[in-house]
Amino acid sequence: MRRVVGFAAVLLLTACSNAPSGGTAPDAGPPGAIRVEVVATGLTHPWEVGFLPDGRLLVTERPGRLALVDRGRRTEVRADLGDVVARGEGGLMGLVVHPDFASTRRFTTCHNTARDVRLVTWELTGAEAARVRDPLRGGLPANPSGRHSGCRLALAANGKLLVGTGDTARPEVAQDRGSLGGKVLELDLATGEGGVLTRGHRNVQGIAVRSDGLVLTAEHGPDVDDEVNVLKPGANYGWDPSRGGTVDHYDEDVPMTDLGRFPDAVPAVWSSGSPTEAVCDAVFLEGEEWGDLNGVLAVTALKGAKVLLFTVTAEGGVHSVSVPEQLDGTHGRLRGAALGPDNALYLTTSNGADDKVLKVTRG
């Protein structure tokens, strides 16, 4: 396992003290006892994995397909997904299986249409899914090209649905209180009611909820500064490519967290510096099975083709970062990350051909 470093406002380094500031650098560390198994193949850009009470996996595929995985066998779910627009970064994305699925058979997804990004609640019967709330919530802005179409779903400790959205690569969206783009939303899972929890985000790709209720997000930077952030209700995270409305183009030379323009903005707890990793989904590893990795935050990376493991303090500060060699460039681009009912870590690859679901355990 190697250790990497990035700049952060509350980062305490325990290794790599000679690493260049603002970047990532390897450091020799003890080999991690990590085991990686392939549990499904033949997928295309799988975005999210959900777990059903009978042990099957439910997977969204970005081109507009739902799949059930049972003991390695993939079955396509029959569902009306004709309005999914899979273009660029957009398509069928986030998924959350409802806590009462055993009785309701319901799950919620997020996808691009020709007009917007929307949440839809479904009911699964056998290998067929029907829309029961369409939309659960609509009107999330979309870019026709699909750029910055992040739509990650997670359940908060209070049962609310958290939705991380992208800013659609438009200059004013992230700071516009009237827009649902460049935000984290907090919605009622049954009704879709609710609104903006935080603003000033570029493109939220991961939302991780710890058992004590702490929420961290993973977010794409431009050519520098991917971020991990602690979520604070009502907070601004400082992304403003409109420069306070003074420019009408998408100016990506602004800081990811612009403390000059927004002194009260929340600084990142970790930032990649340069180069970026294209961090994606995030989940806490929890359970005695993980040994000394119990409580670690696992974050996937697309461009970096790795998993970063963050040791996180009680308050959400990042103490150290490491990369297990078994998940460092070994499976290509990594997107989805979810903790299963067996406390194993499930990952999805996003290489575009014969993509996989991986199961990661402590060896």
Score class of each variant (00 low, 15 high):
297 L>P: 03
138 G>T: 04
238 G>H: 11
108 T>M: 02
113 T>F: 02
72 G>Q: 11
116 D>S: 09
171 P>K: 11
161 L>H: 05
252 E>I: 11
302 L>W: 00
350 S>C: 05
164 G>V: 01
101 F>W: 09
98 H>G: 02
244 G>I: 00
262 F>C: 03
164 G>S: 01
68 L>D: 08
228 V>E: 14
12 L>H: 15
63 P>Q: 12
154 A>Q: 10
33 A>Q: 14
188 D>C: 13
76 E>H: 13
154 A>S: 15
253 D>Q: 14
21 S>G: 03
113 T>Q: 01
360 V>Y: 04
41 T>W: 04
295 G>R: 07
103 S>Y: 00
363 G>K: 14
41 T>H: 14
224 V>H: 13
179 S>D: 12
245 G>N: 08
230 V>N: 12
99 P>W: 05
82 G>K: 11
349 T>R: 08
174 A>C: 12
194 G>Y: 03
37 E>N: 14
35 R>S: 15
146 G>P: 02
201 H>A: 06
149 S>D: 13
70 D>T: 12
84 V>E: 05
36 V>E: 09
318 V>H: 07
284 F>N: 14
315 E>W: 00
348 T>W: 07
268 A>C: 11
193 E>N: 13
86 A>D: 03
260 G>M: 05
290 W>L: 13
21 S>Q: 09
233 P>G: 15
318 V>T: 03
202 R>G: 07
334 L>F: 08
60 T>Y: 09
347 L>D: 04
103 S>F: 02
91 G>A: 09
115 R>V: 03
115 R>W: 01
363 G>Y: 11
125 T>P: 01
38 V>H: 10
17 S>C: 03
159 G>I: 05
238 G>V: 09
254 V>L: 10
247 V>T: 12
110 C>W: 07
362 R>M: 06
270 W>V: 01
134 D>V: 04
123 E>H: 04
26 P>I: 00
24 T>H: 11
86 A>Q: 06
229 N>W: 07
292 D>R: 15
298 A>R: 05
324 P>A: 05
303 K>P: 01
232 K>Y: 14
187 L>Y: 06
345 L>S: 06
334 L>M: 09
308 L>R: 11
136 L>Q: 06
218 A>K: 07
233 P>A: 15
47 W>A: 08
181 G>W: 04
354 D>S: 09
18 N>D: 15
29 G>R: 06
81 L>T: 04
68 L>G: 08
74 R>I: 14
36 V>P: 12
115 R>L: 06
214 L>Q: 13
181 G>F: 01
211 S>M: 02
128 E>W: 01
233 P>C: 13
356 K>D: 10
247 V>E: 11
278 A>P: 02
63 P>W: 06
